[in-house]
Nucleic acid binder design. Structure first.
Lengths: 240, 240
DNA sequence: GCATATTTGTCCGTATGTATA
DNA sequence: CTATACATACGGACAAATATG
């Protein structure tokens, strides 16, 4: 962004340090670049379908092409970018099949993650916190934030399974789902309904009824999928 | 491998072409390199724990460091390699926590993938084929092949869910599991027992009993996990 | 359909920092 | 503590493929 100077490997100490988000962790530059691009994609600053020019982003982030290309690989692997050989990388545009598959995964994983739960599992507070986040976003009519809160809710749900790998899978799935949200506009009522169902799911979990929560989740995901798929079919503007 | 010549970008046409395995698909060099390394890891030609020297592999594969680094990122993302900043990349050495998490994922995904199945789903022939593969490997006392066939069996099982993303998840999980197999020796009896259980699972599926198959799978995975974990604890030789 | 400009794919050389003997 | 080896990241070069006029 700033800092036109050459930025030697570890010389980003004092004043001008591009791309610092997580200053604490010692991560490599490609990873930090990937994090920046990831957030740009999540915020639709890089909307689905656009091509990411190597040259431009290199200049903007003050990094070299090789470094940027490593970051591209990372995000391509996460399905956020599409790499077309000799043509460049693009923010992915998901098709209806993708939406369906995304929900296939969710319906497989999310209910399974809560079904066997008994008692009051540690981590339920995170689930509740996500609900509160949704309420706050709804109160200030922040629809993007409302969608984010819904993703956080389901992320917290699957985290109850206590598996790092499931967590990672879910992170990816939800990041892809955000691409869907960017294509379908006007999701206020959609997220409102989700919020009510989420509340019910949390109540069931707090009552120790994992099986009931799993069932409610399945229904919730089913209806959400139906709604998204129909909304998606009516809006197939971007090709590719 | 061969061809010590410098191999200019598009000059790999006629005689000397390193890393051709999949000649058909037009993939980029980093992806082909990653495929080669992946197979080397699977065959334990690169056993868990070894460091992959950039310089040496560059020479061996006749590629540049930048290209190799892109391949490294790919495999690191798949958890097959461990990237230690400023120290290099290593074939991952899994800990007991990894084995446990791997099975946590499997117990979540695999039963869920077959539970809702009714009738005789397309794809059951693949499952049966994997069993036949196991029989053949067992007949010629090929224990590595027997393990491979078991992985193929479970891969085919989850493929019944019909979800590309679940397929990919499973590919990764099973690739990691192979890392476990390389550390624990002498898995003959282990795989023999698996084979019998697999046979029963297939029979249940052919009878249209998805729920029964799911239950059998859970039991099968439970006992496999126990056995592997105890075997793993007794053999914590490699540190890191 | 063709010539040209742009962009990607891949390589190489090099400076700097970090880890280890 | 110094020296060495290596990983990190940069920048430039050129061929090939694609897009553009």
């Amino acid at each position: 962004m700033t800092s036109g100077t050459t930025t030697a490997p570890g010389t980003d100490g004092a004043s001008a340090r591009p791309l610092d988000q997580v200053v604490l962790e010692r991560t490599s530059i490609p990873e930090r670049v990937a994090a920046v691009l990831r957030s740009w994609i999540a915020e639709a600053r890089l909307p689905p379908g656009v091509r990411l020019s190597e040259e431009r982003i290199c200049a903007e982030l003050a990094i070299s092409r090789n470094t940027l290309r490593e970051a591209f690989r990372l995000l391509t692997h996460e399905r956020l970018l599409l790499h077309r050989l000799n043509r460049g990388v693009f923010v992915r545009v998901l098709g209806v099949e993708d939406v369906e598959d995304l929900y296939r995964v969710r319906k497989l994983v999310e209910p399974a993650a809560v079904r066997e739960l008994r008692g009051r599992p540690a981590g339920l507070d995170r689930v509740a916190a996500a609900l509160a986040e949704a309420d706050a976003a709804g109160a200030r009519q922040d629809w993007f934030g409302l969608g984010t809160a819904d993703l956080h809710f389901h992320r917290a749900l699957t985290a109850l399974a206590g598996s790092p790998r499931v967590d990672e899978l879910m992170d990816r799935v939800l990041a892809e789902l955000r691409l869907v949200f960017h294509v379908v506009p006007d999701l206020r009522s959609f997220h409102q309904r989700c919020r009510e169902e989420n509340r019910r799911i949390l109540a069931l979990l707090e009552a120790g009824d994992g099986a009931g929560a799993a069932e409610a989740l399945t229904g919730c995901l089913d209806s959400a999928e139906r709604e998204l798929v129909t909304a998606y079919r009516e809006r197939p503007r971007a090709s590719l």
